[in-house]
């Protein structure tokens, strides 16, 4: 991955923050914060070899399913002049996330259902991490807010679609649905870090 304020050495990744803040019990040395791939699906994808994604200092991100804000805390290190829109439906998760919102000025919270969003802005990147049955439907609805050449990332949890069938079979079914709307650039299995999860890197069909 190409990004400012981001370092990678094999399986060890870290971001450089403004304030040396310890948010979720990660290792902090000076201003370098370790990005734990066991707690973040985007982090796991980068360790497993997500290469073609590139972020700049001033890009805009729409993040669906922000929860307590572990991944967002690292993204807000990278995007110093950009902004992140954090969407989540759960009130209890949002209360924990508000600690980060008060500390960093590039995060905006939204207490919304991700399938009923409506933004007037256009984003450079969309990341979705929602564990529900209509994951692909929500992604297609929200892809209307992404720029033409923007990248779309989906972490697919097969267990919440069907837990009785083999996960690889479900992934192939969902991939066919996705290929109608998008072109798949990268497909990564997050196996040692996350069970039954795949990370899709997609772009809009022109």
């Amino acid at each position: 991955m190409n990004a400012p304020y981001f370092l990678q050495k094999n399986n060890y990744i870290e971001t450089i923050s403004i304030d040396s803040l310890q948010y979720y019990g990660e290792r902090v040395k000076g201003k370098n914060r370790n990005w734990n791939p066991y707690k973040s699906k985007l982090g796991a994808g980068i360790v497993k070899g997500l290469k073609q994604l590139s972020l700049t200092e001033s890009s805009k991100i729409l993040y669906l399913g922000s929860a307590t804000g572990t991944t967002i805390s690292h993204l807000s290190d990278i995007l110093r002049q950009g902004s992140i829109y954090a969407v989540d439906i759960s009130r209890d998760m949002m209360i924990k996330c508000m600690k980060l919102v008060y500390l960093r000025d590039n995060i905006t919270p939204f207490l919304l259902d991700a399938s009923k969003t409506n933004f007037t802005e256009q984003f450079d990147m969309l990341f979705q991490d929602i564990s529900c049955k209509e994951q692909v439907g929500i992604l297609i609805h929200n892809s209307a807010f992404v720029k033409r050449e923007g990248s779309i990332l989906l972490s697919l949890k097969t267990q919440s679609i069907d837990s009785s069938r083999p996960p690889k079979e479900i992934m192939k079914e969902q991939k066919i649905l996705l290929e109608k709307e998008f072109s798949v650039i990268e497909l990564i299995n997050l196996e040692p870090y996350e069970k039954h999860h795949w990370l899709f890197h997609l772009k809009k069909r022109l």
Binding site: R91, M98, P109, L111
Partner: peptide, 17 residues
């Protein structure tokens, strides 16, 4: 716009108990 959105989320959280 960001501060407006934060105060709206605070209001929503306060009303949801």
């Amino acid at each position: 716009m960001r501060e407006k959105q934060i105060s709206l989320v605070e209001k929503e959280i306060k009303g949801s108990y």
